[in-house]
Amino acid sequence: MGANSLYGPLDPAPDAGYVDAPPRMGFFTDTSVCIGCKACEVACKEWNGVPDDGFNLLGHSYDNTGGLSANSWRAVAFIEQPAVVPAGPVDALAEAAAGRSDALAEAGCGGAGTTREPEFLGMPGTDLPGRTPDAPRTDFRWLMMSNVCKHCTHAGCLDVCPTGALFRTEFGTVVVQEDVCNGCGYCIPACPYGVIDQRKDDGRAWKCTLCYDRIGDGLTPACAQACPTQSIQYGELDELRARAAERVEKLKDQGARLYGHDPDDGVGGDGAFFLLLDEPEVYGLPPDPIVATRDLPAMWKRAGLAGLAMAAAVAVSFLGGRR
């Protein structure tokens, strides 16, 4: 039980009772080299026997998985960003509400920014200077990103799990023990990234285990091994953070920024962090996730006050007028 046990920078495995734990392992997903091939989704399912997620065309560009779930522990996001983006970020849905013809509004603009009528002649839009995030872009961009459980330093799911099914492994990763989970479902609203989910016919909660069985034998997780362009990199978290810091510098002009790398963020930094090319919410990620456990002491205090108020109320009720 260290100082930052509930919140703040921490090496989670020793804090969770592992004496001379191995170095903390994690993922660095560099989305600038992701080609959206979904090998990670398939390799993960083949290794872990994850059931398929149904055959539904979602119309979210090439994403027919629709985000992480109990049956998709890796999920590749696709965002088609038209060449011309008006100054402020506007939601495609809002654009739809503004009554533009349906076909155009829903033109697979990937929810992130939308077009005013692209001027015809192949290269729409004027040639605007520079390409910083949210600044107008002169060419079409297709963002891809393999989303995964963040294996947070302070994991909301793990903290709230009442059966100890979710636990911190010696590698600092967060794993659901399928022989313990009774499907209480509490981890599901507790995850600030909306990762973990209950599998309908099975009842239990499922998510990425960072291939706990493989890394236990010194192997590489299935998705990291399969990833053709090494967008998914597995390794010691400190090494990955150093590598990512170098990488983000090189790609500054493309709007590159790291996400989940900072031990001082709202979850104490992620065990699986990312290099993104646009705002997190464009990929369906929360811009400023904070683990609820941070406010737990304050919450219990409030509950205590309310409890005292109750007791007082009852006392007053009975001891009040003798009648």
């Binding site: 969770a16 009772g17 592992y18 793990l158 100890g164 492994t169 023990q177 313990v180 236990g216 192997l219």
Partner: peptide, 15 residues
Amino acid sequence: RGAASQSARSKNLTA
């Protein structure tokens, strides 16, 4: 949150 709640099955997991 860690060592205490690790089940026997989890401990003996192998690829």
